[in-house]
Write a protein that binds this DNA or RNA. Sequence first.
RNA 1: UGUCCUAUGGUGUAAUGGUAACACUGCAGAUUUUGAUUCUGCCUUUCUAGGUUCGAAUCCUAGUAGGACAACCA
Length: 553
Amino acid sequence: MAEEKSLNFLEEIVETDLKSGKYQSICTRFPPEPNGYLHLGHAKSICLNFGLALKYGGKTNLRFDDTNPITEETEYVESIKDDVRWLGFNWTNEFYASDYFGHLYEFAVALIKKGLAYVDDSTSEEIAMQKGTPTKSGTPNAYRSRSIEENLQLFTEMKEGKYKDGEKVLRAKVDLASTNMHMRDPIIYRIKHAHHHRTGDTWCIYPMYDFAHGQSDAIENITHSICTLEFVPHRELYDWFIANLAIYPSRQYEFARLNVTYTVMSKRKLLQLVNEGDVNGWDDPRMPTISAMRRRGYTAESIRQFCDKIGVAKRENLIDIGLLEFCVREDLNKLAQRRMVISNPLKVVITNYPDGKSEMLPSENNPEDPMSGSRNLPFSRELYIEQDDFMEVPVKKYFRLAPGQMVRLKSAYIIKCNEVIKDTAGNLTELRCTYVPESKSGSDISGLVVKGVIHWVSRPHALEVEMRLYDRLFKVEDLNKIEADFKNYLNKDSLHVIPKVYVEPELANATLEDRFQFIRTGYFCLDKDSTSDKLVFNRTVTLRDMWAKEQKR
RNA sequence: UGUCCUAUGGUGUAAUGGUAACACUGCAGAUUUUGAUUCUGCCUUUCUAGGUUCGAAUCCUAGUAGGACAACCA
């Protein structure tokens, strides 16, 4: 019955720690730097950190890692909070690393007093040089042996603004011969005469990540500090600070970051696309950001499902974008109301339907959800169908409309194509059809059996809207494998706008929250660019299309 | 020519010394007033070589492959 799902390695660690009594309850944190918008990779981390606390009854803090005033902005703070909330998670506390600047400063002083930190006047080039290489150990410089008193004095002066950016740094005195480069006297404080989004001009020295993150974890009593694999070599330093500062022993654990085919998952690269105009902002529906996916029509549930399905482990991975699409389709199929929309119209005249007459035909809103009810569709003598749903010379197994053939108009009548009208250039302009009055949906007594069912809209009743179709942002599967500039692989056709699409009148009532399935086409939602006289719809994802697949062969 | 991490179908993830499984993808079929959904079936897997063991995907050793690390970024 209630089958137990196997645990990922982090859940195992937590369960072990809880069982052994090491912790009574756990505390995790999601620690974004407010220098960009959150993306799908962050969603994985959010689901993990909040998910762990939810599953084992603990707490999760939202902590902004804002130690670099040059790149961080309040706009990003707000977007991050919106995205986490939208994903469905509530943080226990909202904290900022900058809340701890005073605390962190004292930690630095404590280290100096223990003879474990020193002020270095070297340039960054000199420091890099003196660090050696992974295979060659570093060499100490003269500043390394400064007295505690002098270091205290100098560090105070750094804080007081006596020096210019880059003139001096504070370094931890660890081990210049370590095989771990991060242990070779890492810089822990640097001078930046910059305005901070929260602390303003209070500080002109700022702690480095390594001197802020672990200590912030300790201050908040974070039990399990979960980060991505590239921080594995930082762990030794993380533990060194805990030991030498004698603070709360948070533990760092690392998992493999998310990679998805045909896209990039790096804030730096996404920012570049935004800045260089390759996309229209962070929430351009082609972006892998949370805000873009929300705008495109993805549901929070589908993203959570995706994060659950991809699992958590320590090996490099590349997830097929198809899995994400599967997750949205699965969710949207249950909740999206169905609508009839014609994006590539072919006019159909029902010659035996009275001119000027129209009738309202009911159609189910969602066959997957009996509670969703139905709506009425206007039917009349002149209709639009998709050009794809007619073939003058049908291929084998084509069971839509063709000269002399019949199809069912969904929720309406069976029609038969009698005549094909073309313009002088030979282009199809119109189909002349007759309908079978006894074949009305729900009361069909015609006895006819047709294999094909197509969608349609009434020409005089149709609304005109704009439709935006999105394709993958990049043309190659694995962006991590390429050597050249990633922008060389941008898909120039990732956005396709259809300015005039005919939709059933019911869609005039669409709101930003609604999700629709345009029958036989895909899932769509209203875009925020919509105005009262011009609705814009985004395609979230297409429907699976076995016919299209078969056509390719 | 250092240290660390990782290695299971096409892609992910399980199996915790005892018959290698689940999802996605792909393929075939059934149902269908969406060529959708749903349902059924099928394809395909333990990096290599040694060792420990009655028994190894799992433990050990070596190799190979991939990744991370030398920002006053996080």
